[in-house]
Structures are given as structure tokens and as C-alpha cells.
């Protein structure tokens, strides 16, 4: 009775196959657009090696920062109800629904204010590598918070309450009972934030610029190549991004399942 041959399951399997098939067809078309020789020549260039390294480093830092922020924010939103809770909940999703370019403009304008100038005296963000990380983080954190919120909503509060009756402080109950149970969720949030950061283009371009060998990350490399008609270079970098994303996501998922 539960056979996949039933019309209902067949329909669902067909939709899944069509969707995945379309994706695979796109990837195959992109992969065959350029030759291996041309691709390796592009990828070994100094500029692309720099933007690859910068992408890997900035994505990792912004993913870590996203999880560090996402855990307390999501825990608060999941466990406590207070006046303005729904409003704050909606506000936390703003970076998810805003066009990424708008986020970049908001960042740029904020750092033109007095507060922004003071911050920049300590850490310069505009058109720097720190700015690349901040632009990636602002959006990636929203996705990490959404992921962690689901994780904490799913974990019952009762074990923490039992820990409190055994003499634990709030912090001890959180760090010794809830946080270990949320490990897989934290890996999921980090991988979502990492993947999101890797693909971030609009805010990075507006806020950190696209200066070669300085603030150029892989999506900006694709855009720069495309804008001057160097299609092979754009395709080579795109393929590299696809490979990096798949390797990182598969590794993180495998690691998450083991933990």
C-alpha cells in the first residue's frame, strides 16, 4: 500500500525529478561551456586565487559570527514571550526579505553617520575586508537566527527547568543541557550562513567595493568578468563556487550527522 508506484507518490517523485533534473541540466551546461585547460588557466591566475582565498576566509568568519549571534537571539525569542515579541520577530527577518543591494546601501549610509565614523576610527569597514565580512554577516546572521529559532522551538524547555531545580543557574542549564542538544542545529545554522555568505554579492559590492586583490570575492569576480565580456572566466569562477559549496555543505552535513 505504501509503494512508490501509487499515483500520489509518483506525482511527488515526478516533481522532485523535474526540479533536480533542471538543476543538473543547468550545471551540466555550465560545466561543458568551457574546457578544463581554459578553466585551470583562469583559476590559477593571481587575482582569482586571491578572491577564492578571501571568499573562504570571509565566509568562515561571517558564518562563525552569525552562529555566535544567532544562538542567544534565537534562544531568547524561542523561550521568552514579552511585549513587542512579534514585532521583534518580524524585524529579525528584515534582512531575509530586503533586496541584498538595499542592505549594502543601508550599511554604506550608516557608516556615514556620526556613530559610523566613530566605529570606523576603531575598525575601518567601508571598502575593506572587514566590510566584506560585515556585509556577508548582516544577511547570513538572519538566516542563522531563523535556523536556530527552529532548533530551540523544537527542543523542550522541561529538561532546563529540571536542571534549575537541581541547583543550576540559567547559564548552567543553557550551556550544559540545551546547548549540547542543539549541536546539530548549530552546524546547520553555520552551513546555511556559510553558503549564504559565499553567494552574497549586492551588499559586498556596494559596501566593500570590488577592488582587485583587496575586496574582490568570488561573486564579484564573476560579475567583473561578465561585465567586460570575459564569459569563460565568469563560467570558470562560477564552477569553482559550485564545487566549493558542494564540498563544504556535504562535509558540514556529514560532520553534523556524526555529532
Amino acid at each position: 500500500m505504501n509503494s512508490l508506484r501509487q499515483p500520489f507518490w509518483l506525482c511527488l517523485a515526478l516533481i522532485t525529478t523535474l526540479y533536480l533534473g533542471f538543476w543538473l541540466a543547468m550545471l551540466a551546461a555550465t560545466a561543458t561551456y568551457t574546457s578544463l585547460g581554459d578553466m585551470s588557466q583562469v583559476l590559477m591566475s593571481r587575482e582569482i586565487r586571491y578572491s577564492t582565498m578571501l571568499s573562504l576566509v570571509t565566509c568562515t568568519v561571517s558564518a562563525l559570527l552569525s552562529v555566535i549571534v544567532a544562538v542567544p537571539v534565537a534562544y531568547l525569542m524561542s523561550r521568552r514571550r514579552f511585549s513587542g515579541h512579534s514585532l521583534i520577530d518580524a524585524a529579525l527577518d528584515i534582512p531575509i526579505v530586503l533586496p541584498p543591494m538595499v542592505v549594502g546601501i543601508c550599511l554604506l549610509i550608516f557608516f556615514q553617520t556620526t556613530a559610523g565614523h566613530y566605529i570606523e576610527k576603531v575598525v575601518p569597514f567601508t571598502y575593506t575586508i572587514a566590510g566584506v565580512i560585515l556585509a556577508q554577516f548582516v544577511i547570513a546572521a538572519a538566516f542563522a537566527i531563523r535556523t536556530m529559532r527552529g532548533v530551540f522551538d523544537h527542543l523542550p524547555a522541561r529538561p532546563e527547568e529540571v536542571a534549575l531545580t537541581l541547583g543550576a543557574t540559567r547559564w548552567e542549564a543553557f550551556s550544559q543541557v540545551t546547548l549540547p542538544a542543539a549541536r546539530n542545529g548549530m552546524f546547520a545554522a553555520a552551513s546555511v550562513a556559510w553558503a549564504r555568505s559565499l553567494g552574497e554579492f549586492g551588499p559586498v559590492l556596494v559596501f566593500a567595493g570590488a577592488t582587485r586583490m583587496k575586496t574582490e570575492v568570488l561573486p564579484t569576480s564573476v560579475w567583473m568578468a561578465w561585465s567586460v565580456g570575459e564569459l569563460e572566466q565568469g563560467v570558470a569562477v562560477s564552477l569553482l563556487m559550485i564545487v566549493i559549496s558542494m564540498v563544504v555543505l556535504i562535509s558540514v552535513r556529514a560532520m553534523g550527522e556524526r555529532i
Partner: peptide, 13 residues
């Protein structure tokens, strides 16, 4: 006090 909730609420990990 000692507290035993309905489903035991054991610490998951």
C-alpha cells in the same frame, strides 16, 4: 525539592 516531570525530561545528550 526533587522534581520529576511527566515524561521524565531527561537531558538529551
Amino acid at each position: 525539592i526533587g522534581y520529576v516531570p511527566q515524561d521524565g525530561a531527561l537531558f538529551p545528550t
